[in-house]
Design a protein around this nucleic acid. Structure first.
Lengths: 273, 273
DNA sequence: CCGTGCCGTTTACGACGTAAACGTCCTAGT
DNA sequence: ACTAGGACGTTTACGTCGTAAACGGCACGG
């Protein structure tokens, strides 16, 4: 049994368990095979897989209907038989990427081992996806959701349902479950978007310019930044994520015990049920 | 003196003080005047102002060099005398928008009244900007920053410097100040990006389709979502922001008192350069 | 044997970002 | 006063984009 989860914090010496190198093949792209071998008959799933692959490799702005077609060994117009247009292609990409959560054996749809375990596993599952597809995640974050109350990065009704059922079944009131959903979404979005954007900048060499070794935009006015540059540059993403997540779970536990919407506290102090 | 700030929570009956209607003219766009009156001689500032105005009005995807030129009463190529290209135009837009913070009288560069006051004012200032320019904020969030350690939404060295000086001058160790900067950025980004995207979806009627009254993508599989739909739809953004901000400040106070990086407490004494 | 779908290609159009050459005016030096 | 030059906006042009529309080949059921 390879790579069990570690919901209670990081192995002190271990590598980041959510990084693509840090685990087995879970949360991988839908395999699309080498670009032109195996001339499969080109369905929607294959197109979306190839699009994700292409974005991961070349960046979002490089994805073009023509280029994606070429990547599949096909003319651009062939894609339109399966996808209405580019916008819907991107919607499909987002949907496909978050659907990888269903294939992750460490993420459960039910809170069988308590809501904290559920939220821990879910958070790490999403983080794994974000780190596996750093170029796609900004799309997950910014594409307008289907309904205003479906919040990125958990952009699927099924996960919203799962979330709300899990929490309400574990003692959260309906209002607290909704509040928790919102707090949790904000937490995930902020941390993961920053993490992938930081990673993206660090990795990018081909994208915009080419001065990776040294580019100093006059730091002379900012002595504190200069002094702390070393500290600012260390990457503590995994630990910070873990810590902020633990803190959030702690907050939610308080909310759960109070059993009420944490704001509007008079709704329960002066009123038995 | 109109509309004083209220850093210690929301006026119980008041409207959201960060909403564009909720206060005076602070955090307004650089005035560009009516589109074609006053044929001013077209400098960089005017172009960026017009671009922000245009994005706010028509959405980011509608911004085109040709259309922006037309909006300014000029051919597209005229813009290239002041801006190298479209990408740099967007960078300039992001920079301009966050520069509105300097014009906000309620946000201070120094922590004259303590770090909590400083962070409260800064957070609300950024929130005001996000709400004033909901179509621009995703750009603020996703555009690659200049250096990997300059994190959105505080994307300017001057604010990073200000932040770090403010916290270290209030008793934070260097490591804690940096950790606070990261936690604070994640908090702002997650909450504000979700808030503007929610608002954007709610407001948009012209953008993609046109079925605002009812569009029900088969909720029959998701009974809990249906049952909690009312709760999910209420907008508690202001209160949630405030509550999460208070919680963050509480966490940071603990970090400050411990005076150390909360993770890895033994690693900073012999810190490498 | 011949329709008749399916499925990928070809052709075409308008919009985009932008390089390059070109006015057109204002100003300064003689 | 005349002219050289620079600042500023326009014109033209090219390659690429998304995609509508017509087309071609191939398999299969009558």
């Amino acid at each position: 049994m390879p790579t069990p989860v570690d919901p209670e914090g990081l192995d002190p010496e271990g590598v980041d368990p959510d990084s693509p190198e840090g685990r087995g093949g879970a949360a991988a792209v839908i395999p699309a095979g080498p670009p032109d071998t195996g001339r499969a008959p080109l369905d929607r799933r294959r197109i979306l897989g190839a699009a994700i692959e292409y974005i991961d490799a070349q960046g979002l702005s490089a994805l073009t209907m023509r280029r994606l077609g070429a990547h599949l060994g096909v003319e651009a117009m062939a894609l339109y038989r399966y996808i209405p247009g580019r916008e819907q292609l991107l919607d499909g990409v987002v949907e496909s990427v978050i659907d990888e959560l269903y294939g992750d054996p460490d993420v459960h749809l039910e809170a069988a081992h308590g809501w904290q375990d559920y939220l821990q596993r879910l958070a790490h599952g999403v983080r794994r996806i974000a780190l596996a597809h750093p170029e796609v995640f900004p799309l997950v974050a910014t594409r307008p959701p289907a309904a205003p109350w479906v919040r990125p990065p958990l952009r699927s009704l099924r996960w919203v349902e799962s979330f709300l059922v899990a929490l309400t079944s574990c003692g959260f009131s309906e209002a607290s479950a909704v509040a928790a959903y919102r707090a949790y979404s904000s937490f995930l979005l902020g941390h993961l978007l920053l993490e992938v954007s930081q990673k993206g900048v660090a990795v990018n060499a081909e994208d915009a310019g080419a001065q990776p070794p040294e580019f100093a935009p006059d730091l002379s006015e900012y002595p504190t930044v200069v002094r702390l540059q070393g500290l600012l540059s260390v990457d503590e993403s995994a630990a910070e994520f873990e810590e902020a997540l633990e803190n959030l779970l702690g907050r939610l536990e308080v909310v759960r015990r109070e059993g009420r919407n944490p704001r509007n506290p008079e709704s329960f102090t002066d009123r038995p049920d």
